[in-house]
């Protein structure tokens, strides 16, 4: 019972904050809702007994990536009003309907092919423990792991080159 309440509360929070991110006019408020959304997703991971990923989600996403967004928003937003240009050619309603249709389709597929409940429930699952994740990461997936680190290095160099005022 408790896990049902947890799931629906967190799901509601995630979706509400997600909607606020894409609909709020003020970009800084939007970034704030994004942080709240990521924290709710981290709590969802924690409720699925994936504590390591939950901690990484907070540390890297909420504490790192979104701070970058906030910096950029503050840099590019200082001189302009928070509202963006209203464009009459923009068809928000049509976009919403399209998203709704695809969502209904995806949900239909997911429900029609419903999976059996997992053999072990979330509370006793060991798949998310730090030890298991670390073992998988450093044995079977060592090469993808190293590739990811090279990717981060390339991205770092790229970001510095792009953000420099003169080359």
């Amino acid at each position: 019972m408790a896990d049902v309440i947890t799931f629906y509360t967190l799901a509601a929070l995630i979706l509400i904050f997600g909607l606020l991110v894409v609909t709020t006019r003020n970009t800084v408020h939007s970034v704030l809702f994004l942080v709240a959304d990521f924290l709710a997703v981290a709590m969802l991971y924690a409720s699925m007994n994936s504590l390591f990923v939950a901690a990484i989600q907070v540390l890297v996403y909420a504490g790192g990536i979104v701070v970058l967004y906030l910096f950029v928003v503050m840099l590019v937003n200082l001189k302009r009003p928070p509202e963006e240009v209203r464009d009459p050619a923009r068809q928000t309603g049509l976009g919403g309907v399209l998203a709704g249709v695809v969502l209904a389709e995806l949900a239909l597929i997911a429900v029609a092919n419903a999976l059996d409940p997992p053999a072990t429930d979330a509370a006793s699952s060991t798949a998310g423990l730090t030890e298991q994740v670390g073992l998988a990461l450093y044995t079977d997936y060592l090469i993808p792991f190293e590739v990811a680190s090279v990717l981060l290095l390339v991205a770092m160099v790229g970001a510095i080159v792009l953000a420099r005022r003169e080359l």
């Binding site: 390591f52 990923v53 998310g128 994740v133 998988a136 997936y141």
Partner: peptide
């Protein structure tokens, strides 16, 4: 990952 009890999804 939870469904199949496998750490692959986490990785």
């Amino acid at each position: 990952s939870l469904q199949w009890g496998n750490s692959l999804g986490q990785v």
